[in-house]
Every structure is written in C-alpha cells, then in structure tokens.
Computed example of a mutant assay.
Amino acid sequence: MDRIKKLRLRPSVNFKVVTILPDDEITICETCNQAKIGNLAFPTLEEALNSIDSPEETTITLLSDVDLGESTLKLGTNTNIVLDLAGYKITSRNLDGTIYLEGALTIKDSSEKETGVIENLYPKGMGIYFDRSGVLKLEGGTIKGYSALYNWSNTPAPFVIMNGGTLIGSWYGISYLDAANIIINNGTVRGGVMAFNNWGKSKHSFYIGESSYIKKGALLHNGISKKYDAIENVVIVKNQYEIVNSFFTHSTISSSFSLA
C-alpha cells in the first residue's frame, strides 16, 4: 500500500513537441501561386487572366511553372497582356497551341539566365496559334512547338515583331501566310525543316535585322521558294511596320539587309 501511494505521488511530466522547419519549408506555400499582377498573387495563371476586365496593358508575372495539360491559354481580342516568364515554363500537350492569340501579347523574361519557355509538348502542337487577328511582340524567352508560331489566315494576318528571344520548331520555326507582317529585329529562329515557311502564298518578303539568326532556310519573296542560310543571303525589305499602342502602322520602304 505504501508503494502504491509513493507511485501516485510521483510528479507527472508533460511533453510539448515543437517542430522547427527550415526557412525554405516555412515559405514554400508562397510558390503555390502561379502568377501575380502587381502584388496580387493568383493560384493559377488562368485566374490571373480572368481577373483582368480592361483592355489596358496589364503585366502578369509567373511565380512558378505552369502545366496546362491538354488545355490552351486563350487570349481574346480585348486582351493586352505583358507576360513576364521570369525564368519559368508554360507547357501544354494539345493539337492547337499552348497560347491561342487574338489580342495583343508581349512576352519577356526578366530572369538572369533567361530560362523562360512556352512549349507545346504534343508531337504536332503549336507554340502560339494565331487566328485572323493578334499582335505578338517578343522581347525574350523561348517558344517551342511543332511550329513555334503558326498562322493560317491573311484576312488580315496577325502581326509579329521580334526584338529578342528564340523560336524553335521541330517542323517550322515560323509558319505564316503573310510574311510582310513579320519583323525580326533581333533573336533566333530555328526550324527542323525550315526556319520560315509562308506556304508559297505571301506576296511579300519579311524584315530581318542584322542581329538576327536564321537557321535552316526559309521561303521568301512573292511566294517563291528559296532556301538560304545566315551566311550568304540578302533579304529585300518591301514592307515594314512599327508598333503604336500595341498595334502596327504601315510604311513602305525598299532596302536590303545582310544576315550576319
């Protein structure tokens, strides 16, 4: 009996478990968001886009990689987006395009190593698919697909101005009906078959600046097929456009530019 009393009189010990997480685990939920507009973060890139109700230029910055699966990111005619890849990737696996563009889109990459990518992983999927409208200004980043840029309309054809970045197509780098609507001031275009293909339907040449690099030939000049490389060809410029408020105005020039 005395022993039982002694046991009962023993003080009880309370244990409190404290878990200390490393800093990177404490803040890991910050990367759960895919994109932000200003200081406002969104769980998905689609939600960030859907929050925009104005045609005014709006910058969306990626916070993580975005896997669209079989879906397409659709930018309608009233959109005016600056997309900062910030070193991250947007990927899809569909027969159309990772981005379906009808509005105005500027793509840049603010990351130090410029590792931002937009890619369609479907064997014959396009990077950016245009339809009847659309304005693309490429400042940085890489676009990949069966064709990095694809358009099958010239009524009117969308516009592209490339001031940087890289276009890579396992088929064509650029597959586009109206060459006059393409200006490549700087950057790299590569194609598995050809860098540029206008399907023999364009009556114009396209502008290529001296800082640009074209690999694997192209179709040029009034729909006439002509292969060339970046060492020996001179491109005749018949039409040039400049961006004004995300759209292009037209002026006629006649010059030639040697490819470096």
Rank of each mutant, 00 (worst) to 15 (best):
F159C: 10
V237E: 01
L9W: 08
G209E: 04
Y146F: 15
F206Y: 13
D24W: 15
I60Y: 07
T31V: 02
N50Q: 14
G140M: 04
G38L: 13
E56M: 14
T19L: 03
V117M: 02
D84R: 02
Y176S: 01
A180S: 15
G125N: 03
G165I: 13
A157K: 11
I231P: 03
W171F: 15
V17N: 08
E30G: 14
P123V: 04
D23Q: 15
L259A: 04
V193G: 01
E112P: 00
A260E: 10
A260R: 14
L21C: 10
S205V: 03
T79Y: 13
K74T: 09
I99H: 08
I184R: 11
L136G: 01
G125D: 00
W171A: 08
L259I: 09
D23P: 10
L75C: 06
I161Y: 09
T252S: 10
D67Q: 11
S258A: 07
T249S: 13
L105W: 08
N163A: 06
K226M: 06
N163Y: 15
K226I: 12
A195Q: 01
E119L: 03
V117G: 00
E57D: 01
D65P: 05
D65I: 06
L138D: 00
G69W: 10
V237S: 10
F130V: 00
P55R: 10
I60L: 07
A86W: 08
R3I: 07
K203S: 04
K89R: 12
I231W: 15
E210S: 15
K124P: 00
K74N: 04
D2S: 12
